[in-house]
Design a protein around this nucleic acid. Structure first.
Length: 574
RNA sequence: GCGCCUGUAGCUCAACUGGAUAGAGCGCUUGGCUACGGACCAGGAGGUUCUGGGUUCAAAUCCUAGCAGGCGCACCA
């Protein structure tokens, strides 16, 4: 149920019915006409721009048109008490008490699904996909939470969502990773000193993995790297992925599918994808231009397979093969995305870190080519996270430039705060994450502030000895809302719209912002009781007005739905 | 040189995707509350929305030319 959508339908069909009376030649399919919530200073519930939009297409005076529409609405629809024309021709509508009650009851009766937009599409969200050469660092955290909440959001609306992790377990970096483990094993077993080199991974976790491998392979001698490489690769990858999965679990994230790059190669998915593209002439042999900007002396002009991604909006065509004829990383990814397309997803979403900005065009182009434009791939880039402590840039690393791991972060900050704060910004803005702020129990800390409002509500219900799910009967004769309640109710009406834009534009940050605003209105109402005893909710252990109870339950419902989608807990005592 | 992102109050950011007098938090400042749950609430000051041009009833939002910052710009992954 979405109150704006319901009334725009009614208003539009009324206008259609009375098109001649309104002297409108062109309705332009009602494009751009919306009902929304007006700025608070216009004390009304809904606002509609129909006259403004239609006046434009019919070259008439918007205010006069607004006046006609106003009369029609008051005549034909009985949900409204009063309509005012404001500004250039906005219709500001005030709902009657009866329609307020009807709308409140609708929400109370469908509390589990309030805000849900009925959809049934299939989505694949690929996110995190951190290299399996080590544990997750903070940089991965933002994309992880973003992807997870996006999945929750789309699922809430009834879509089928597959959360996927692409494991880059192929290529040179994995070889170096295995080599590092091998050398650590030699170090432990034969006391050979581990020498730090550029390509090798020195981290503590490598030693842990090495120990585990020694333990599970007591007979193995680990004499030559070439002989042990397969065994080491397999086991260390599995240990490494376990570490990552554990981190994710602690953040409340679980993927549905892990897709291995190695399997992609062994199943010849790349060859299949390339052949598919060749048939359409999207891939052919050719030469690439040397990279512009800094001159690279090692550049050689070599004939190779090239994907014509410029046909699909990329800036330059892309190499599918290296000099030695093997596939590039991109070619493998094309194979992977061919598989996604074949699995019949309607929408693909890739959540990437800021360092992959330059990659999005080519893979988006590839999906267009692979699916003949039928499947939409949307690459969402999460900008950097900057860590602060006490307002100062913060580095926990022993050596400069080393990333702070998720484990380190989790030692200081709980999952709820991490999740909420990681979404408290639009994904394409850099995010400052302050360790101290996040731990504060104050208005400074939005997580706390929202949770606190729910704790207050829970406490209220304990005092009343009532349950949030108890039925509420609103009396039509005596029904009236005070100024605070009407403000809150109007905010509650906005919830479905927040869900709608957050999910259709992939902007989950709308939710924390909204919840914070809702919590503010509630805290404000609560405090009114301190100034004026008339505003106290309870008298002699009983609620004074049923209306208040209903409004508070609505707040609880929306905060629960919202925090549920964010994956943040909502304690009833704090 | 090229691409993507960003530029809004002193600071960190919103702005229903083209709507009405551009809003929050922090900081500054004035006051109130001290247990329906205290960790809050109310008010005040603070703006050329980076700059110039354009599109229209209407621009922070769209187009265009610049400026500034960030991230990238392999046959790495």
């Amino acid at each position: 149920m979405n109150i704006f959508e319901e009334y725009i339908k009614q208003i539009n069909s009324l206008i259609l019915k009375k098109q001649q009376f309104l002297k409108l030649n062109n309705l332009n399919n009602f494009k751009g006409i919306v009902v929304e919530s007006p700025p608070p200073e216009f004390n009304c519930d809904l606002s509609c721009n129909a006259a403004l939009v239609l006046a434009k297409f019919n070259k008439t005076n918007p205010k006069e048109l607004a006046d006609k529409i106003k009369k029609l609405i008051l005549n034909d629809l009985n949900d409204f008490d009063k309509i005012e024309i404001a500004g250039p021709g906005f219709l500001n509508l005030k709902l009657s008490n009866n329609s307020l009650i009807t709308n409140i009851n609708k929400i109370l009766e469908n509390e589990e699904t309030y805000g849900k937009k009925q959809c049934s599409n299939t989505y694949n969200i690929e996110f995190v996909s951190a290299n399996p050469t080590g544990p997750m660092h903070v940089g991965h955290c933002r994309g992880a939470v973003y992807g997870d909440v996006l999945a929750n959001l789309l699922k809430f609306n009834g879509n089928k969502v597959t959360k996927e992790y692409y494991i880059n377990d192929y290529g040179n970096q994995i070889k170096n990773f295995a080599k590092s483990v091998f050398l650590r094993i030699r170090e432990i077993k034969y006391n050979e000193k581990f020498i730090t080199k550029e390509d090798l991974y020195p981290g503590e976790y490598i030693i842990e993995i090495s120990k585990k491998i020694i333990k599970s392979n007591k007979k193995e001698k680990f004499d030559k790297f070439d002989e042990s490489i397969e065994l080491i690769k397999k086991e260390s990858l599995s240990h490494s992925m376990d570490l990552i999965k554990l981190d994710l679990k602690k953040l409340g994230i679980e993927h549905d599918n892990f897709f291995s790059e190695t399997k992609l190669i062994s199943n010849k998915l790349v060859d299949k994808a390339v052949n598919h593209l060749k048939k359409n002439n999207y891939v052919q042999e050719g030469y690439l231009e040397p990279p512009k900007g800094e001159k690279d002396k090692t550049w050689k002009k070599t004939k190779r397979l090239i994907f014509k991604s410029t046909l699909f909006g990329d800036d330059t065509d892309r190499a599918m093969q290296k000099d030695d004829g093997s596939w590039t990383y991109f070619a493998n990814d094309v194979g992977y995305h061919m598989d996604k397309v074949n699995r019949n997803f309607e929408y693909l979403i890739n959540v990437l870190g800021a360092d992959h900005t330059g990659y999005t065009k080519r893979i988006t182009a590839a999906v267009k080519a692979l699916s003949e434009n039928k499947v939409k791939l949307n690459c969402k880039v999460c900008q950097l996270v900057k860590l602060y402590k006490n307002g100062k840039p913060f580095k926990m690393s022993k050596r400069a430039g080393e990333f702070i791991s998720v484990q380190d972060l989790l030692k200081e900050v709980d999952k709820d705060s991490i999740r909420f704060m990681m979404l408290n910004r639009s994904n394409d803005v850099e995010l400052d994450f302050d360790f101290d702020k996040v731990l504060e129990k104050s208005k400074d800390n939005p997580v706390f502030y929202v949770q606190y409002s729910f704790a207050r509500i829970s406490s209220l219900f304990r005092t009343l000895n009532k349950d949030l799910k108890d039925k509420i009967d609103l009396d039509k004769k005596s029904f009236s809302l005070n100024e605070n309640e009407i403000k809150i109710l109007r905010k509650i009406f906005e919830w479905p719209k927040i869900i709608e834009t957050a999910s259709s534009k992939y902007e989950p940050h709308k939710i924390p912002y909204y919840l914070y605003e809702l919590a503010t209105l509630f805290h404000s109402y609560w405090s009114k009781g301190n100034e004026d005893l008339n505003f106290k909710f309870i008298e002699n252990g009983k609620i004074k007005r049923t209306e208040t109870l209903a409004i508070i339950v609505l707040v609880a419902i929306v905060i629960q739905r919202g925090m549920n989608i964010l994956g943040v807990s909502l304690p009833d005592k704090m």
